[in-house]
Amino acid sequence: MNTKVQLENMNVHFGANHAVKSVNLDFPANSVTAIIGPSGCGKSTLLRAVNRMHDLVPTARVSGRILLDGTDVYARGVDPVAIRRKIGMVFQKPNPFPAMSIHDNVVAGYKLNNSLKRGEAEEIVETSLRRVALWDEVKDRLKSSAMDLSGGQQQRLCIARTVAVQPEVILMDEPCSALDPIATLKIEELVEELKERYTIIIVTHNMQQAARVSDATAFMYMGEMVESGPTKKIFTTPEMKQTEDYITGRFG
């Protein structure tokens, strides 16, 4: 399998705090990679470094290389905005734009950039909503506010919004942590389908979820990448003692 995203000796500092330490990791294309680890281990920090969301934090410093199709996303002259169009992101709490309708939320990426062509919207909205299995639930009320949807629907809307701008990679930062089990199940099924088109990196503190949805799993602890490999192997025959302790619930 091709490597889509590659971390080479990647470090993230917040001021004096060394949050992610010399991580090397490959994310194969069209697969789901889960990053697990206890709270504060740096997994979200790592994820946010990939689409340069740390650029807005003045104290944050990312070093090493993060390669997207072999190109360093932090190289001089690379526009973070262009990177974020290729690497979409879904957040912990569903965050649809409250002032926009369901319809407008889906095409928000185009609308906010003034790049929506005439007559294009309807098709984008339908395709994107179908792709996240939300179309049938909302097709009769596309004009109503996104805030009228349930939490799970809102999260799927956020995924639709991300999918609509045709990214290559989708980062998911604990996308189900604010959702009930049924909504969680729907998102997990969705992740399974989405990997046909996108490369997915999902951060989760829910080990069962990692086991269910991912092809590969990486375990982080205290900012370091302890172990990574095929999900089955990590959960059945981990090589490191720390990994075993964590997945058997002895700490964390």
Partner: peptide, 17 residues
């Protein structure tokens, strides 16, 4: 809420927009 700013940036919308 800062989550709105993040949502927009993650869609590839420049900060000024």
């Amino acid at each position: 809420p800062g989550t709105l700013r993040e949502a927009s940036l993650a869609l590839g919308v420049p900060l000024w927009r």
